[in-house]
Nucleic acid binder design. Sequence first.
DNA 1: CTGAAAGCGCTAACAC
DNA 2: GTGTTAGCGCTTTCAG
Lengths: 332, 332
Amino acid sequence: MSVTIYDVAREANVSMATVSRVVNGNQNVKPATRKKVLDCIERLGYRPNAVARGLASKKTTTIGVIVPDISKSYYAELSRGIADVATMYEYNIILSNSDKRPQREVELFEDHLGKQVDGVIFMSDSLSEEIRKEMATANVPIVLAGTLDAGTNLPTVNIDHEEAAYQAVKKLIENGHERIVHVSGPLSRDINRLCKKVGYEKALKEANLPIIDDFFIETDNTYDDAYEKWKLIRDLEEKPTGIFAGNDEIAVGILNGLRDDGLSVPDDMEVICFQHTLLTRVVRPQLSAVIVPLYDLGAVSMRLLTKLMNGEEVEDVGVILPYHMEERQSTK
Amino acid sequence: MSVTIYDVAREANVSMATVSRVVNGNQNVKPATRKKVLDCIERLGYRPNAVARGLASKKTTTIGVIVPDISKSYYAELSRGIADVATMYEYNIILSNSDKRPQREVELFEDHLGKQVDGVIFMSDSLSEEIRKEMATANVPIVLAGTLDAGTNLPTVNIDHEEAAYQAVKKLIENGHERIVHVSGPLSRDINRLCKKVGYEKALKEANLPIIDDFFIETDNTYDDAYEKWKLIRDLEEKPTGIFAGNDEIAVGILNGLRDDGLSVPDDMEVICFQHTLLTRVVRPQLSAVIVPLYDLGAVSMRLLTKLMNGEEVEDVGVILPYHMEERQSTK
DNA sequence: CTGAAAGCGCTAACAC
DNA sequence: GTGTTAGCGCTTTCAG
């Protein structure tokens, strides 16, 4: 068997309580005693058993992170932000993929609670009734990262997607465009239906431009689908001259469609999008974009969670982070 | 407080042992009793405490995953493979980022052991002396995923990078090229120095082509650096006509360098690389590449780990997965 | 400043 | 088929 706190205590001629104190940095230990214990720990190669500690103290210094799909760079980046702050506060992360399936989300959430996590960070498109109910009765703090709250009053950190979309489209309008297509991700996602689309329409309305159904193109958020859907735009009666894409993968699909049809950006078409990855800078022309601070979204979420776990009073549980727009070669 | 196994036992008029049996699916319970217990569990909303279970059973059904940087799509993809198989076998994952810092790797490894993980999957460039020592004395199974073993006899799953590099360069040679540049990642990484470079040189030797120092370009594996380093190639006395890039990010850097200098691929230069991401298909021309099965590397690693954790005899602890080459537009 | 002792919630013999 | 009873390794009062 491995060495326990009891072994150390015996070896050092002190009680388990004292060993526990030095391990936990409790100051009420005479320096000489501390040193003696530390020596024994070193000599025996003692490593505290976090599971036993968790059972006794009711804290595991572990948090749960439920993410749609870690292989998507969007969530990977966000998770890195979470992880770095978690490390800073000495928390471990149990990471699980939900694929956004509501039932799976509930299972994972319960599973994490069973593991006695001290808190959870949740990411998804929106909250199902079931998960909302689960969360309401959970007795650990929860933070929604980059996830629309829409109804509950859970702590959330996000950027203002509607405003960002509005600004992006406004930029196109200022450049003189009157026929602007919005190539969106799935409308089933709140962020697309309730934020980006709304921002797009708001900008059009403000400029007294018509909202044309055919100028709204829905994709499944992938490069391949966007590449295909470009044909819809190409074949439009009234040719648009500007494109607002829901993310960079979509934008690159469109860009390649344009390009393969011999059109040129930004001369024949100006393009702007939300940026989640390196893609925007790698393609030619480089894409003008709204830069979403994914890492920060994660980091701030975790920081907020630490406060909540500490029982600190947090006045502002609906954090909105700033974004910025970077104009590159796909707009003039 | 939350409801415990004791509460359920009392409510159902059975012993804790019986409740434990039904929770753990032990068949030695009369159906009627089982039902009664299940009802109480449902009614009281009992959720087993995995920490207590872990302490009593000495199994946490949790594994540790130590990864250089989850925000890199290479590792994110691999991790997803791990996670899916972990889910299948009902394991949770504690995920930590090491940034490949040897000391951090050791800390994380010990940390995970402290949390009593049942096994760990480790990814890095290579193994430092210290981590090797830690691993040797650990009493849980370890699998190296996509990580060069180089000396120890730890379970490993990988692809044959040397062979893949050899094939890629050979392809270029078959296309008639005699002056082929290898744009590599850092030579400090075993995978570059001991595998890809070796495969590159092997192909040249076999074709009686000289190995020219200037034809080896080292980068830090990033797009930006590769884009800069293109100038070194451009300014070479003897113009190369083929490029073998260590990964797709490098290849795209070179590609954009070429392109911004008005050169064309594949007419002026053929390019082939290792593929880790979507990048190869998104750029124009699409890049011919050796496709590394990242997801599978992760999945197979986890599968191997489950066997090891089960104490199964595994004859083949040095798994080599197949790769394949996809010829696209950057070669003829 | 240190020790004794009672759990934390569960599993795993071992009895019956 | 079911109950009893030790622990698992640690923290945490409470005494002293």
